[in-house]
Nucleic acid binder design. Structure first.
Lengths: 223, 223
DNA sequence: CGGCGTATAGGTATAAATACCTGTTTTGAA
DNA sequence: TTCAAAACAGGTATTTATACCTATACGCCG
């Protein structure tokens, strides 16, 4: 029976990486077998690596590579596809619940905020390795709050204007065009114009499509 | 510093309850301070109880009380509202991912399938008490698959008929009343009748409200 | 400067949804 | 079997939404 756990780190900040290595060396069961500063080369290097890590610590905010962004999210996607047995533990400075949910949904097995103490890191690594998951209360809460939410599509931000988004939100609150016009001190015709544009831009047949679009893109919340 | 963890059990099967008590007595840090065979009386009894349990083990499949169903889900809802600090650990024979997600979304802090070994029970109790969560790989997988879904409201189950639900689903797919009528081989008048009932039952002003309701209650998925 | 997109407003139509009604048939549970 | 709810169908009317036009004012950018 092998007691050691092979650990890898993908982290761009050298200082933090060194700190993490120091923490890992405290416990004999951990063996660091892989480290990398960016997501792009990680997959390449892993193929050439003699030992595949059991647990990979991945920094969420990796630097962009040239034009393309390649964050911890992308790494998680790539790793969980290439190495289904590898357990992925996200390290992040963000406590944003959307981030947490997103990562978990894309294959991460655990999420740690970077201010955790070493003991929790140890616990988390062991937990993902043995149980396949490490979720603490904070993370659980994020998952609870975010079920039903998805992150807004990138293209959306440029497609839909501020005013259109405003009107879309009011539509989703079950206001009629007339009521929206009153609220915004504009003509009903204008509101209808915006709605027509929204239908066209979102490719919807009717308000139903607009509501679905708004929810998918997190323009409104499903409270 | 108090090391003991006060534990409660809500479980209708006497044999299983006794078995669990035996398991708990194995470890000195656990102290059983509450037990109950059904969900209805649990809240009542808890109010009269001198010690509020830190962790409550709740059987998912509690027997119905008279006409009304009152499962572990209802207990979870009630407990997490009445005792926000209490950690709820679900015991279930079901591995159904919808069940798991449902419970977690309604306030449960952990989910255990009943065939687990005593060691995992101990680990789970300690974990929910200290970390506020116990999620193993099985449960995590359920959450991953089911994020984006929410569980239908309890009242909904009796309120909305099958046919109405069917029509609501088609409405959410952007079909008009006429198209729905064609699809279901019924009259447009009938479709409108159903929709009128839906509007009334859900308290909506228009289709927008219907769509929101359908999404909230997982009648349709936000794919 | 000129072009582009946004926000604004209007007209004219039709399609669809919604509000009230009244019924009959089917189905499921007591 | 009996009864209530659900599913079905229809009428009439009004309100909203949607489609397809045009057109002006404003700001931004090359």
């Amino acid at each position: 029976m092998e007691n050691r756990i092979f650990v890898g780190i993908i982290e761009d900040q050298l200082l933090f990486r060194e700190g993490m290595k120091a923490i890992l060396s405290t416990w004999p069961e951990f063996e660091l077998v892989f480290e990398c500063a960016d997501g792009y080369s990680a997959i390449d290097k892993l193929n050439k690596c003699a030992i595949t890590p059991d647990v990979m610590l991945v920094d969420l905010s990796l630097p962009p590579q040239g034009q393309k962004e390649f964050s911890g999210l992308h790494v998680t996607l790539a790793l969980s596809e290439a190495y289904p047995d590898m357990k992925i533990l996200i390290l992040s400075v963000h406590e944003d619940e959307n981030f947490i949910t997103q990562l978990i949904n894309h294959g991460a097995h655990g999420y740690l905020v970077k201010d955790v103490d070493p003991g929790e890191v140890q616990e988390a690594i062991i937990s993902v390795h043995k149980k396949g998951a490490y979720i603490n209360e904070r993370t659980l809460r994020a998952l609870q709050h975010n079920t039903g939410k998805k992150v807004r599509t990138v293209k959306l931000l440029t497609q839909i204007t501020r005013r259109e988004e405003e009107i879309l939100q009011l539509i989703c609150r079950q206001y009629t065009a007339e009521e929206i016009a009153e609220k915004l001190f504009i003509s009903v015709k204008t509101v209808n114009g915006h709605r027509t544009n929204l239908l066209q831009k979102t490719g919807s047949r009717n308000v139903t499509g607009l509501v679905l679009y708004a929810l998918k893109n997190n323009i409104v919340d499903l409270v």
